[in-house]
Amino acid sequence: MKLSDRIRQGDTRAAAKLITMVENDFQQAQKYLKELQEYCGQATVIGITGPPGSGKSTITDRLAKHIRKIGKKIAIIAIDPSSPFTGGAILGDRIRMQDLSTDKDVFIRSIGTRGQLGGLSRSTQAVVKIMDAMGKEIIFIETVGVGQSEIEVIKVSDIILLLLMPGMGDDIQIIKAGIMEIGDIFVVNKSDREGTDRLIVEIEMMLSLNDVRKRNPAIIKTIGTENIGIEELWQEVERLNVYLQDKGEMQLRRKNRIRKEIHDLFLENWQELFFQFIGEDNIENEVQKILKQDIDPYSAVQKLTEVFKKQIIKGG
């Protein structure tokens, strides 16, 4: 049987293998992704972000268990950081999802960031498609919670949950930049802790100051470890989902995503082409020149780009 057919029938092993291919050799994987494309678009993708330790894995586990009760099939993408030095990683989010691992209708995949800029959001999107084609109805993406690529990755989802917890001190300042704006629902986890009400006031204030979209994102209190607030959280997700569909916002988000995907894929192809044509030797040459102060990096790249352009025109 074809790999894509096996995936469509929900074969875990086939899907897992293709995900590996996506991560290791995207060019090759595209062949199969093409075959899956027409079966995608059914799943709802939920992004879960927030600082490390805020309870992302715990909440994902709880939500998944809650949804399993209504019988929906689930997939989870759990992203953890790779070491920038060795490329290795310890992926530990599954610790909190142990009971889910033997549920046939739950598929969990841990992914290291592997340090490619832009690469992660591209492969995350591909992994979502594979899971979607497998017939998973709800797909969670648990992100690392910090760093530059964070926002790019989380934008692969339809609805974004932003987790915060009391007692973070100044951390909330860091989160403000960029991420506050993309949270569709604010989850105040660890609300068993002191400072919960203060945090909620802070969030409300920040939202009223910053939010230009004139919406009113819900703030939901949860205690992940005690399974409290999970039902309310899921109700809010469903409510918002309907709302976004009705307003046409969901359609818009998906459209933007496709645009972004084309952009990413295109960029990657061109990048590869560029380096193929120019070659490592030419680049090394320029590096040497810059080192010797013979040329500046701006002019060097300009020169290389010119060469590249000519090559392309020649090559047709």
């Binding site: 715990t58 310890i90 530990g92 610790i95 909190r96 142990q98 470890t225 005690e226 399974n227």
Partner: peptide
């Protein structure tokens, strides 16, 4: 009471 889950700290 619920059950404890370890947290990975490596």
């Amino acid at each position: 009471f619920g059950e404890y889950r370890e947290s990975l700290k490596i």
